[in-house]
Nucleic acid binder design. Structure first.
Lengths: 240, 240
DNA sequence: CGCGGGTTTGAATGAGTTCAATCACGGTGG
DNA sequence: CCACCGTGATTGAACTCATTCAAACCCGCG
């Protein structure tokens, strides 16, 4: 929960450091191994989830096997807040790495929201941010070239991770195979590989087994037309 | 407001036919001509809008002129509910046709929501639906072919219009140039034209100056893998 | 009639895919 | 210690879908 608190703490003051209103919430800690489902398609969702650690994806698989990843869920992200109205999920969520997550029943969540205005505001912000990320994803895959898409996504992940970890870093720990980048960006695996090597050749990044290093953030951001503003991280006080 | 009521009325019973809780809300009716802005990029949004009549688009324009439409706003749609937290808009909204819209100040909106639970639920549903539409847009442009994209979008618009109008129809009144379909689907204008003629040749649709007629809904839905379920229109009682 | 916005068609080009082979690497078992 | 996997990354070559450029067309309107 620390992650979530550290994130929404940037937006709203949630009643002092020591006292965590979320702790009063009924919740259950669950874990998933890499590849395991968290929410299946068609499943009735009656809980809100918060990722404690690890990476997960929200995605949809078409009949012929094509897969589209809607977005990546990082530590501190929460999801299915919207689905609290007894709807069946139209997409699946599954763990990419080992994932620890917190499950809160929708009704508990709702009553907590209604009793604590600043908590509600904080989660509202999280929802605003999530919607912004979805919109940016549409623009990315709708109107950007492969090179721009990959660069843009890498920068987004970097910013989001920085927001969670509370510190700047040019190193992106990417615990995911290139296939996931492909299915997120609407490209083929092969082309992701080629595009990454172009980004390397251009001096924007270097890659290593555990992830990517950003060598020229400014140049890459300009090339990919990346503006971190949409993440609403403005007020983010990265710890000194 | 009739449109919105007719839509959310499907989900929740909003206190009887004659009595409309929304009417008590402070609101202002505004109109826009085709092409006029409704919300500009970077503008601080402090209102919630409801489209009364006409079509609008939410979109973003990249530096070099590329445009990506996030989604189409039809009568009964409302937007910027999320942005009630003094955020600057990261995308623009503008009228495609003549548009009449209702503007409600965020604070009025909020207090109405907190005083009327079923109203809040109704708008929550609208939010759920809007998010689902965004997700479907990602899948559409991420992993579908041009033919599938166009067919899928046409079917979605048809379903959404049916939900607003309260009746089935195989005729889609499309008051928009093909350029808008292109910018929505991440394709070129030329290719939209070619794709439409393929859909015609396949017997799925026929086109005329004012829009499109669906000739083979079932076949087209299957071809495009369209499942209207995601619109959460299940309970929609189309008037007999 | 001629203009202008939107649509259609053709031909050439290009970005990204597909297929297939190779490579790199870590683990496993002999 | 080494052969042998299996998974993921990379590279090449052929191919395809969609773009671009350009011309023609259509139609409502002044």
């Amino acid at each position: 929960m620390k992650n979530l608190i550290s994130r929404i703490g940037h937006y709203v003051d949630i009643g002092g450091d020591k006292f965590n209103p979320l702790d009063k919430l009924n919740h259950r800690i669950e874990t998933r191994r890499p590849g395991e489902d968290i929410v299946r398609v068609g499943e009735k969702v009656d809980s809100v989830f918060v990722i404690e650690s690890g990476w997960a994806i929200r995605f949809r698989i078409l009949d012929d096997g094509r897969r589209q990843i809607l977005n990546f869920m990082l530590p501190g992200d929460c999801f299915d807040m919207m689905a609290m109205v007894k709807a069946k999920s139209d997409h699946a969520v599954s763990a990419v790495t080992q994932v620890i997550l917190r499950r809160i029943s929708s009704s508990d969540f709702l009553s907590a929201m209604s009793q604590n205005a600043s908590l509600a505001t904080a989660f509202w912000w999280v929802g605003v941010q999530e919607e912004a990320i979805l919109r940016e994803q549409i623009i990315r895959i709708g109107r950007r070239s492969a090179k721009e898409r990959v660069a843009h996504l890498l920068l987004e992940l970097n910013r989001r991770l920085a927001a969670v970890e509370g510190r700047e870093s040019d190193t992106i720990n990417l615990p995911i195979p290139q296939a996931l980048l492909a299915d997120s960006l609407g490209l083929s695996i092969v082309h992701i590989s080629r595009t990454l090597s172009k980004l390397r050749a251009a001096g924007y990044i270097s890659t290593n087994p555990s992830g990517v290093d950003i060598l020229d953030r400014k140049g890459m951001a300009e090339m990919a037309d990346f503006d971190s503003h949409y993440l609403h991280l403005d007020k983010l006080k990265l710890s000194a």
